[in-house]
Simulated assay, not measured.
Amino acid sequence: MTHFGIGVSTAVAAVPGTLKLALQADQAGLDLLTVSDHPYYADRLDAYAEIGVLLGRTERISGLVSVTNLPTRPASMLARTITSLSALTGGRIVLGMGVGGLWDDIARLGFTKLTPGQAVRAFEEGVRLVKMLGGGGEPVTFDGEFYQVTNLEPAEEAMPPLWTGSVGPKSLAVTGRVADGWMPGRAADWLSERYRTSRPVIDQAAVDAGRDPGDIVTVYNFPGRITTEALKNTRADDGRWIGGSPDQWIEELTGAVLEHGAAGFVLFGPGGSTPDETSAARWAGEIVPAVREAVAK
């Protein structure tokens, strides 16, 4: 399955538009609504409060916090949040997890500032523990460097797919060992240097862990303009996607799936902005159905 989504704002001031865009995406048949997680900013909504409300207002679309700021959301509680949302929505949730990067901001919230090495080790422990706390089974005891639980009963609800936003080589290797998917950082796509150097790290770590690299999907945050007329150049001099007409988007995304194994795309506006209503309608009504049809052939 190829996933098609849209990134929505977390701004408190944008709530009416965000609710409208979520309903539009759901009714148009998109697969994913995504929100970012920056709880240290007072003018931003809490990601899980927002995704819970958006899922409560919609019927078919799934939610994804892209990606959960793990240092501010302890793994055992994150697992409870995710399995609860899954139970409440009939499984309409994907779990995104990240190492954490803005450590001065994280520290201002009262959480311990970790070194890069500690952060990656805590990330791997967190992913492993979260996965153990869904799907029923025997009580879990976990005695790690950063996480400890004793005889904690897993939720009966299955843990949904877990995608990471790994960037550095050590966290990419964690993705290969324990995750189900990867969303390349900084909106890198399948033609980028970041992808070309990062995906092999994931694949090798998967092989070393006895896993099939093909089981780890790649889903892209993909910003760009949707224009009425075709653009002469759809990519900038540095290779980054600019956008183009619906036909140009359709050609680009179809090629990404068929030639590069892309498993999904989340639309953003230029520079990572929230797509406007017109762009969202063209994405869901013209581009996504055509790509789905082309891929199915």
Rank of each mutant, 00 (worst) to 15 (best):
N69E: 08
L70A: 01
L70H: 00
T72C: 05
T72L: 12
R73C: 10
P74K: 07
P74I: 01
A75R: 02
A75W: 02
S76N: 03
S76H: 03
S76M: 02
M77K: 05
M77F: 04
L78F: 04
L78V: 01
L78Q: 01
L78N: 07
L78E: 02
L78G: 01
A79T: 00
R80F: 02
R80L: 00
T81M: 15
T81L: 13
I82E: 02
T83C: 10
T83Y: 08
S84D: 12
L85W: 05
L85I: 06
S86N: 09
S86C: 14
A87E: 03
A87F: 02
A87R: 01
T89Q: 14
G90Y: 13
G90R: 12
G90W: 14
R92L: 06
R92M: 03
R92V: 03
R92C: 02
R92T: 01
I93R: 00
I93W: 05
V94T: 08
V94G: 12
V94K: 03
L95Y: 10
L95H: 13
L95A: 14
L95P: 09
G96K: 08
G96P: 12
M97F: 06
M97W: 00
M97V: 09
M97D: 07
M97I: 09
G98I: 03
G98K: 00
V99D: 04
V99R: 05
G100M: 15
G101I: 06
L102M: 14
L102Y: 08
L102S: 15
L102C: 09
W103Y: 12
W103I: 07
W103V: 08
D104P: 15
D105W: 14
I106C: 01
R108F: 04
R108Y: 07
R108T: 04
R108A: 07
G110P: 06
G110A: 06
G110Y: 05
F111C: 10
F111Y: 13
T112P: 09
T112E: 15
T112S: 11
T112D: 10
K113A: 08
K113E: 08
K113L: 08
K113H: 04
L114I: 07
L114E: 04
P116E: 07
P116V: 10
G117E: 09
G117N: 10
A119E: 02
A119N: 02
A119H: 04
A119S: 06
A119Y: 02
R121M: 09
A122V: 15
F123D: 12
F123N: 07
